[in-house]
Amino acid sequence: MIKIEKLHKSYPIGKDSLHVLKGIDLHIKEGEFVSIMGSSGSGKSTLLNIVGLLDVHDEGNYFLNGQLIKDMNEKKAALLRNKFLGFIFQSFNLISYKTALENVALPLYYKGISRKERLKTALDYLEKVGLKEWAEHLPNELSGGQKQRVAIARALVTKPKVVLADEPTGALDSTTTDSVMDLLKDINDEGMTVFVITHEEEVAEQTKRVVRLKDGLIISDEITAVGKSKAV
């Protein structure tokens, strides 16, 4: 599903440049539940942004669903994002003046689906994350956990191949963290590839494969206990 070969990425800082990713090789197959661990500055967010087509790499190859990602313009990237990817952000990134239902329905608007169908599908997904009753509420009327569940529903509504989660539990307490992780597990059980970035060991433990990054390089890549038990 996601194949990365010798990926490099630098950011210019004044005259110098900061080399963030120093040759990453990573292969994630369809249906995997992978977490990327690393301290801040390890390059994990940069990796996710590149995988999510929110940013471009400098060197190396990136294949998404078998397609080489190269010379992307914003229009092509937008199409691919809409088709293959679902995003979950640490800060939820809901649009503040839209209701929960409208937020969830928004990706379907950019897919060109009729309003009636959009709202119906969005309501189904809100029900799935247990927020059907909150459909008409604005984001600022929801708790952090509820917001993140709305964001998850929004990420899932287009039935993407890969769900990318950037510190999805970073702004949540431990109880809501568990409920969000349970949701991600359910998604994965349905066959979706889930790609989580985190710095919390408890979160990583619940995924099936943990890739550890340090200073722009992969230092370990192992199957977790959960992954082993599931594999059996």
């Binding site: 929110l54 914003e74 937008a78 994002r81 950019y110």
Partner: peptide, 12 residues
């Protein structure tokens, strides 16, 4: 930015 992450083209 959110809209673009969700698949909005720049033209839209």
């Amino acid at each position: 930015g959110i809209r673009k992450a969700l698949g909005a083209k720049p033209a839209s």
